[in-house]
Amino acid sequence: MMVLLEINNLKTYFHTRSGSVKAVDDVSFKLGKGEVLGLAGESGCGKTTTCLSIMRMIDNPGEILEGEILYENAKEVMGSSDNTERTNNILDLTDAEMRRIRGNHIAMIFQGAMNAMNPVHRIGDQIMEVLKIHEPEVPKEEMWQRVIDILEVVGIDSSRARDYPHQLSGGQKQRALIAMALINNPDIVIADEPVTALDVIVQAQVLKATKELQKKFNLSMIMITHDLSVIAEVCETLAIMYAGKMVEYGKLRTVFKEPSHPYTQLLIEAFPSIVGPLKELKDIGGDVPDLRNPPLGCNFHPRCPKVMDICRTEEPPSFATKDGFVACWLYEVKKEK
């Protein structure tokens, strides 16, 4: 699979009065063409910040300190002259170039966006606005036609294009947001908790539509959610974040069925299911650490049932697994063999 996006050693901190919040701390992963990656983890672990960094939408007091975000098609937005020395690193693009990336190449559906739609503009017009940013020269009639088309694609009847957001149900609003993300034919769509606020039946309908669209356009997607069952349904690869770190990454089935990291194991066990035998409830115990002062060594160690001496002082590097990696000292032995 062709790698479309590669994130290396990304660090994004928020400098607050009481110290720096290490929201994303040395995160690396890849996203292939047509791949759907799930990004999971407890609230506050840095999922949104990771993706906002990719969009270069980190504002004060936030700062991307280190790392690179390599985007395969970055050259397309650069001016034609002297690109030869330039890399594909999104972080090195000018602001003008970055504006061409946003929405056009990489689109993001923001967390809670459903409730943030402009109440006084018709949804069709809101979608058209997005189109105008990148292709202002297209005649209005043609633009409107494209809006209608994309609405049909996501399963909203074209007659609803002139409705205001409050006239749409939650599921329809979420579909409209997907339409807005797709209208410029992006390569990559990042969706932050796209179905969390929806009821199960509507959730199932929206996810089904999402899956179909992803296949149809061979989209690469990053799906952020804390709901592992949603990930199990749509993703091929799964990345688990804990307190600013990516602690495990691999094929969906591997991470689900043979989780390596103790945190992943506990997270999966804590998830109740309506199928299978009725299980005793299990919890992880303890709390997510304060990201201003993360614990020394492995930052999961205060909650880890398998903690060893080394974990308290040395930060575990990433060790290779069957089809990904895990950041945990338990797997060090395997490396030495």
Binding site: V200, I201, Q203, A204, L207, D227, L228, S229, V230, A232, E233, L252, R253, F256, K257, I268, F271, S273, I274, V275, G276
Partner: peptide, 14 residues
């Protein structure tokens, strides 16, 4: 309602 509930298992498809 039950058919719609996502299952936390890659093999149990909705």
């Amino acid at each position: 309602l039950i058919a719609a509930v996502p299952k936390p298992d890659p093999d149990a498809h909705r």
